[in-house]
Design a protein around this nucleic acid. Structure first.
Lengths: 217, 217
DNA sequence: GGTGTGTGTTCGAGTTCGGTAAAGCCGGGC
DNA sequence: GCCCGGCTTTACCGAACTCGAACACACACC
C-alpha cells in the first residue's frame, strides 16, 4: 500500500520481477479490506496513507489474529522504534529514500524468517558465456573471472535477471540507482560501456536503439 | 517472563501461533518457581523484572544445574545486560525493540542447537591457509595458531561458514553482534582489520567495495 | 551524400568508501 | 583505587569509483 504513484509503481515493478504477485492499494481502508480478503504472504505499508494510517492497519490486522508479515515504509528515522515489534508487531521497516532492491531483499528476509527455513539460495544466472552469482557477487565471462565495481555488478545483475527483456535507461536508473537518483540517463551508457569492456568479446549486452538495453535471451 | 503486558501478549501470541506451548509469568520469583516446576524446553526472560531480575533467574537455574536454554530480552543499547546475560550461560538475547518473528526464529534456533541439530556448525572449516574449529574456538593460519578475541573469532567464523558469500555490514552486525539495527557504524571494519592483521599474509577476507566482506571461496 | 538524432568512448573533477591510527569507554583483575 | 585488554567511535587520508561533459562515431531518413 502506497499513495505516491511513482513509488508504488516502482515497488510493484521490483517485486513482480522477483516473482512476487503484487496487489496494490492507494488508500488505507481499501488496503485493510484487501489484506483481509486476499490473505497475502506479506504486506508493505506506507506509514502515511490517506484514509487509514499504516500503523492502524497493522494494529487492526493483529487484533483480528492476522499475523501476516508487515514491512513499513517510513520517511523518518524517529518513527522506527515505535513501529517494529513492540506496539504494532511489524516485522521490518525501510526508511525513504530506499532502493527498491533493498525493499525486495527485506521482503525476502522476512518471509524466510517467518518460514523458519534456511536461507533461500539466490540463484546463479547464466546468459551465453557469462555467469553471475548474486550471493558471491562474482561474474565470469567465458570461464574467467571478471572484476566489476558495485554499480557495474548491480547493473549487469539487473539486466540478467530477465534475459531478453529490454530496460529503458529510466528503468535502469530507477532500479539500479534507486528512485531518488539524481544521475542523468547518459550515466547508464557510460556504465554499460564499462561493463562491456570488462566482459570483453563475451559481451552480452545489446543496445536497442531508441529504447534501452537488454541481454540476449 | 515479561512484565509489560503488551509485550508479553505479543510474544505469547507469536510463540503460540508457531506451535509452542507458552506459560507466562510477570514476576521474577514466580518465574523461577515455574521454570523449576514445569521444566520448559526454553525460557524467554526480560532482564528487568519485578521481584527478581532475569539475570538472577538465569544464574540460579544454572547454579542448580539446570541448563534449559534461556533467551533474554534486553533494553536497547544496553551493553551491560548483553554481556552479563551471556556470561551467565544464556543462549541468546534479543534487544528491544525487536520483531516478534525474530524472537520466534531465535527460539527455534536455540532449540535446534541444544538438540544437537543437523547444523554442521561444529565442523572444522578450511579456507586456503586458514583453518577454524568452532568447537575448540581455535584458528590457525599457515599452520601456526592465531589468538583471536571472542568477537573476532565469531566474525571470522560467520564469514567462513559460507565461503565466497558476501555479507553486508548489516548482516554481520545482525549475525555476529546480534544488533537488529540498520548499520551506520564502522565497528565491523575495525574488527575486520584486526582479524586481517592477526592472520597476517594469509588473510582471506576480501572487501567488496560498496557491499561488504567475504572470504575467498 | 548530407543531416540529425542517438550511442560509444574518453577523461578528469569531485565524491564516496574503506583502511588505519588513536582516543574513549567499560568491565575485570590486581 | 589503578591498570589492562577488548570493544566502539572518531578522524583523517589515500584510493577507488562515479558522473557528466565533450567529442567521435553509427545509423536512419531524406
Amino acid at each position: 500500500m502506497e499513495d505516491e504513484p511513482a513509488i508504488a509503481d516502482l515497488v510493484r515493478l521490483y517485486l513482480t520481477r522477483d516473482g512476487f504477485g503484487v496487489h496494490l492499494e492507494r488508500d488505507g481502508e481499501a488496503g485493510l479490506n484487501a489484506a483481509r480478503r486476499l490473505r497475502p504472504v506479506a504486506c508493505v505499508l506506507d506509514i502515511a496513507l490517506p484514509g487509514l494510517p499504516g500503523t492502524e492497519i497493522c494494529r487492526r490486522l493483529r487484533e483480528a489474529g492476522d499475523w501476516t508479515p508487515v514491512i513499513f515504509l517510513t520517511a523518518r528515522d524517529d518513527e522506527v522504534d515505535r513501529i517494529v515489534g513492540l506496539e504494532l508487531g511489524a516485522d521490518d521497516y525501510v526508511t525513504k529514500p530506499f532502493s527498491p532492491r533493498e525493499l525486495v531483499a527485506r521482503v525476502r528476509a522476512v518471509l524466510r524468517r517467518s518460514a523458519g527455513g534456511p536461507e533461500g539460495a539466490d540463484r546463479q544466472r547464466v546468459v551465453g558465456p557469462v555467469t553471475l552469482d548474486p550471493a558471491r557477487r562474482t561474474v565470469t565471462a567465458a570461464g574467467s573471472p571478471v572484476q566489476l565495481t558495485s554499480t557495474e555488478f548491480d547493473l549487469l545483475a539487473h539486466l540478467m535477471a530477465r534475459p531478453g527483456r529490454v530496460f529503458t535507461r529510466e528503468e535502469l536508473l530507477a532500479g539500479v540507482w534507486g528512485y531518488a537518483a539524481h544521475a542523468g540517463t547518459r550515466t547508464v551508457d557510460v556504465h554499460v560501456a564499462q561493463v562491456r569492456a570488462k566482459l570483453g568479446p563475451a559481451s552480452v549486452i545489446r543496445t536497442h536503439r531508441g529504447v534501452g538495453y537488454a541481454v540476449d535471451a
